[in-house]
């Protein structure tokens, strides 16, 4: 029976009670201890797919685990042949995992995403001479081409405005974070960035976000999510000599 891997933690971190794992019926969680490390695993469900319910279960297990101690969260969908494959791997790179756990200990990930907003196009036009020119042109001689050019210019302007606003907010959060990591490109987002934040600074982070987001209100739509398991800060240090 292949096993589903949720994450790697320290041996003493408890497996959360009452949390259901990935699968139908939801899989039970168990801990594979290897020296000072432990992997939290469950039986891999047959026909594992990226279903909403499974992804949600994966996330909830990780949130519960991260509440109990440092955690290196696994990406959704990592399946391993058997217990020995996991413990063998933990033993083989024990120092790397321990160092990676030290890095995230007492910290969490906060993720900032920003998208353009369509509100306030009037302000945008007022501030941009090129938009004013295109608008006048479009009103004088309406047509498909000029409409496309005008619309494209507005879209570009909205994006640029959102990027500027998002960077302002991101720089405020960077000042409170231990590390910063750009996230994957996400459709519709002009900025996706994660912050590694000390657990006791999350409230401060939220307050700073609220203040900064207020100052750029109407220019970008900003979403700060967290505290999250440290998805973006869990890479193993490069092996020595590599």
């Amino acid at each position: 029976m292949s096993i589903y891997l949720y994450g790697v933690t320290r041996a003493e971190v408890p497996v959360p009670r009452g949390v259901r794992g990935v699968g139908d019926p939801p899989g039970k969680l168990r801990k594979l201890v290897a020296g000072g490390l432990a992997a939290v695993v469950g039986d891999a469900p047959e026909g594992l797919r990226a279903r909403r319910r499974y992804v949600q279960a994966h996330q909830e297990v990780l949130l519960a685990l991260a509440a109990g101690g440092p955690l290196l969260p696994t990406r959704f969908g990592v399946v391993v042949a058997d217990d020995e494959a996991v413990t063998g791997r933990l033993h083989a790179d024990a120092h790397g995992y321990a160092a990676a756990l030290d890095r995230v200990a007492g910290r969490c990930e906060m993720n900032l995403k920003a998208s353009p907003v369509e509100a306030g196009v009037a302000d945008l036009v007022r501030e941009d001479p090129r938009l004013q020119r295109l608008r006048q042109e479009s009103r004088r001689r309406p047509g498909y081409d000029v409409s496309i050019r005008l619309g494209e210019a507005v879209e570009t302007g909205l994006r640029r405005r959102a990027v500027g606003a998002a960077q302002q907010v991101a720089s405020v959060l960077s000042g409170l974070a231990d590390e910063v990591q750009a996230g994957p490109e996400v459709p519709g987002c002009v900025l996706n960035v994660s912050f590694l934040v000390a657990a006791d600074r999350v409230a401060e982070c939220r307050a700073a976000f609220d203040g900064a987001a207020d100052r750029v209100a109407g220019r970008a739509e900003l979403r700060l999510t967290g505290p999250l398991p440290c998805y973006s800060f869990s890479g193993l240090p490069a092996p020595a000599g590599a």
Partner: peptide, 20 residues
């Protein structure tokens, strides 16, 4: 939704494992 990119694209993978 707002963390889907992280769950699917970030986090450890451990390729050295016998990953199915």
């Amino acid at each position: 939704y707002d963390v889907l990119d992280l769950i699917l694209d970030r986090g450890i993978v451990i390729d050295v494992f016998l990953r199915v």
